[in-house]
Design a protein around this nucleic acid. Structure first.
Lengths: 211, 211
DNA sequence: GTCTATATCTCGATAGAC
DNA sequence: GTCTATCGAGATATAGAC
């Protein structure tokens, strides 16, 4: 569920339904009829509120795009130790994706079809966004390396690995459930995932005496 | 490019084209006309070879599904040390996805729309597949933990993290290119990624004297 | 096997009653 | 604002010539 304060109740119902359908089927694969059904309204109303399918998609995408990037960057910036930074990133991202699965799915779908368009959009947005969590993590890693708090690693590659670990398993959860018996209890599995990611990354980054 | 030995030359051209289009647009979003154009043939021929759009998608999906899982499991099983296992997994997976981007995209697309169907399919297939690389890695981790070669970690979570690190960045490469200047040189970036992943995971798994 | 032409249906979008 | 009915474009699929 996304907080869409600036919309009326009906618009919000459409919005939520559209996000769900677009996220799963993609822009081309989605059907206006399916969105209308999901929203519990008539198909004509979609066009009354949002002029066209393109218009509806743009509205949903733009909202989601900012929502996703702005999620919890500030909390990241306020962390004191690197340990806290890493923990905030992992818990924050995993919780965010858990609570906004379709937001993540829509972003992934947008990457699948038309990656260049994705790049363009991001380029425009990035100029005004300093607080995207992966960027903040990257900077914190750079600082921690300089302080000797962690081993000398590539900050961007490391942030990318952390990000992957937080998101990818949600994307392939149907497969994960088949392979791992433990994944049947979703909440428990997510908890394990957070703990594992922190443990592995923290130990992987800690300086070592023996080499 | 995929090796499709059991198909004629025309069928193969269709196959490749269909994979490309289905991977980017999804099953519903794909257009038979676009596939025909990409294959350099007439639309009617698609129906001559594969009865329907559904039939074509099923053929492509089933082939890709096995191709993806069988990729290099055997090489994994033959590794001696855990260090070699990890290196084989990372290099193998990264290279495989680099060379078969659309295979990965099709699998991701299938997860986005209709995850349950994905689970069903996988469940059927898994019974006859012992060599899927993540499974082999998971077993090797379990053995290495027992031997005291690496720290006591959850084998499945660890394999999942390795897998995420090898695949996810390809999926969001358009975004990666915008954020990381280094990603403009794709080959170099992929090399860095392999090195980073091995370094971080290996150090993260190594036993430590200091706790 | 490969093409052109066409039938059939589905989807996005609009008109118009209420 | 919300509905029913419908138009017209574009999609899958087939028929039939070569």
């Amino acid at each position: 569920m996304i907080e869409t304060a600036e919309y009326t109740e009906t618009e919000e119902r459409i919005f939520e339904a559209a996000l769900r359908v677009f996220a799963q089927k993609g822009k081309d694969g989605a059907r206006m009829q399916e969105i209308a059904d999901a929203a519990g309204i008539n198909k004509a109303l979609l066009h009354y509120y949002f002029r066209s399918k393109d218009g509806l998609y743009e509205a949903v995408f733009n909202y989601v795009f900012h929502h996703f990037l702005d999620s919890f960057g500030k909390a990241m910036q306020e962390t004191a130790s690197f340990e806290e930074t890493l923990r905030t990133f992992i818990n924050g991202y995993v919780d965010y994706v858990r609570d906004h699965l379709d937001v993540m799915r829509l972003m992934v779908n947008a990457h699948l079809s038309g990656g260049e368009a994705m790049g363009q959009r991001l380029r425009r947005y990035m100029e005004s966004s300093e607080a995207a969590p992966p960027r903040v993590l990257s900077e914190k890693i750079l600082a921690a390396v300089a302080e000797g708090e962690i081993r000398p690693v590539d900050p961007f590659q490391t942030a990318l690995t952390a990000l992957s670990g937080c998101i990818f398993f949600f994307l392939i959860y149907p497969t994960v459930e088949v392979i791992a018996p433990a994944a049947a209890d979703r909440d428990a599995f997510i908890g394990q995932r957070k703990a594992h990611l922190f443990d592995l990354l923290f130990h992987g980054l800690k300086p070592r005496s023996d080499g």
